[in-house]
Design a protein around this nucleic acid. Structure first.
Ligand SMILES: NC(=O)c1ccc[n+]([C@@H]2O[C@H](COP(=O)([O-])OP(=O)(O)OC[C@H]3O[C@@H](n4cnc5c(N)ncnc54)[C@H](O)[C@@H]3O)[C@@H](O)[C@H]2O)c1
Ligand SMILES: NC(=O)c1ccc[n+]([C@@H]2O[C@H](COP(=O)([O-])OP(=O)(O)OC[C@H]3O[C@@H](n4cnc5c(N)ncnc54)[C@H](O)[C@@H]3O)[C@@H](O)[C@H]2O)c1
Lengths: 208, 208
DNA sequence: ACTTTATTGTGATTTAATTCACAATAAATT
DNA sequence: AATTTATTGTGAATTAAATCACAATAAAGT
């Protein structure tokens, strides 16, 4: 069981590059094409595939269709992933209106909030009270959620999500969530991303 | 010059943990406190500090105030970082209304768009035509930008940013930008973050 | 059919990152 | 003042990730 996050992220990138190549009419691809497309070495590509038992044809490269199927299987893209959001604020609004998730097989089913002003039971993507999360998650068998609640309420909201049966959280709140150890957390900390960028801009400036 | 991204991200996390400890009234901290706070080992903390020549007192730990100052210096937090956004859509709206950047010393100065309907010259954070980016960036000496333009326009918008003098981009568009090699790119690909989360949720499910 | 050529697949090697382990030492205790 | 204790700082060891390098081999060419 491979648990190298970078490796799994590369698989996603290969997949996205393959979609583009396929849409351009390509049928086969070589490891160095994929390498160029995502900015790694060709042996990295082959090693990644090797790790998951993905094989191509010596001399003939890889068949895009079959590669996409295998990568899709590994990444769980063989079915639509249904997702909820905790916190129906600005960020949630952007996520709910983003059309790009659909074509990746990701569907935001509902958002949950504590503020009655945010409730919208009959909207295309309904916004419901936090109290209804458990029922919704259980009856729709949802496993993944996005946490878009302010820092102060974040741990409490996460606990509600875990109690509802959520097993993975994409966390936008700038703190380290405590989670049961059968649950996964991916943090997106934009303050830190920007801070990090500033560091590297300064490094490059000093170097150049 | 340390260029290990994970290491720099840990510095940010130490800093954030230290702010919290300081606000709770603590004056000193030991490597194992910081380790617990951000979820790494104590020797990782000490090694990270050692890499940047940060020292504490044997037996006495580290003084929080001085540590914060040193980390701030390394991360460029000794001055306010001024930032622009390309693309004044949903995501930009969320970013422009987010109050959390201020207290991290990040200030969004303006957004730029091609859609005249988005223009708002006199708003608190003005939304200006792309054509005005260069003047604005040059006269305000801005180095960092956020790219929040749809995939199709993303490379063109990035090129405009580079031409304006931007040296680092936080990129939300789901593609690999081509950039001059004195410029830094940090990608935030939310589709991939979710996909990755799904993978690890499935892994955990199989394990348990 | 044989040879050449291009590309895979992977064990071996290298490089990078993390952890270990302990001497150095500052503070606290006796 | 001597001893104990707790903690740093870092070189050494370990582990993890990436790259190298090349034998295996499938396709194309002669
Ligand atoms: N907006 C950004 O650009 C941005 C940038 C970086 C980080 N973040 C982080 O993302 C998260 C969301 O940011 P935002 O700008 O959308 O915030 P927001 O204030 O616009 O929205 C937060 C929503 O969460 C709701 N809420 C508060 N407590 C709750 C609880 N306990 N349970 C459920 N809902 C609750 C509020 O009613 C509100 O609707 C925050 O943690 C923020 O720190 C946002
Ligand atoms: N909104 C999300 O939740 C989300 C999630 C994942 C990824 N993204 C990515 O983030 C980016 C922004 O998403 P969004 O939802 O804010 O999009 P959006 O459609 O709401 O806004 C995009 C804005 O960019 C402007 N624009 C278009 N072409 C431009 C150009 N060449 N130069 C300058 N401006 C231009 C448009 O006028 C619009 O105002 C996209 O690349 C998207 O793929 C967004």
């Amino acid at each position: 069981m491979i648990t190298n996050k970078n490796c799994i992220i590369r698989l996603s990138r290969y997949k996205n590059a393959l979609y583009r190549l396929r849409d351009l009419g390509f049928v086969k691809v070589f490891s160095d094409n994929l390498a160029d497309a995502i900015g790694v070495t060709a042996s990295q590509v082959r090693k990644d595939f090797s790790l998951f038992g993905i094989t191509g044809n010596r001399k003939g490269g890889y068949e895009i269709a079959s590669l996409l199927e295998k990568l899709g299987g590994i990444l769980g893209k063989d079915r639509i992933e249904r997702v909820i959001i905790a916190g129906a604020g600005h960020l949630a609004y952007a996520l709910m209106h983003y059309r790009g998730f659909e074509k990746e097989g990701i569907k935001i089913e509902a958002a949950f909030d504590i503020d009655p002003l945010k409730f919208a039971k009959n909207a295309q993507i309904p916004v419901l009270p936090m109290e209804e999360m458990k029922d919704f998650v259980v009856s729709n068998n949802i496993k993944v959620g996005v946490l878009a609640v302010p820092e102060v309420g974040a741990q409490r909201a996460a606990d509600t999500m875990f109690a509802a049966g959520i097993k993975g959280i994409l966390n936008f709140a700038p703190l380290r969530l405590k989670a049961p150890n059968d649950c996964a957390i991916n943090n997106v900390n934009l303050e830190i991303e920007l801070e990090n960028l500033v560091y590297f801009v300064n490094v490059l400036e000093k170097k150049g």
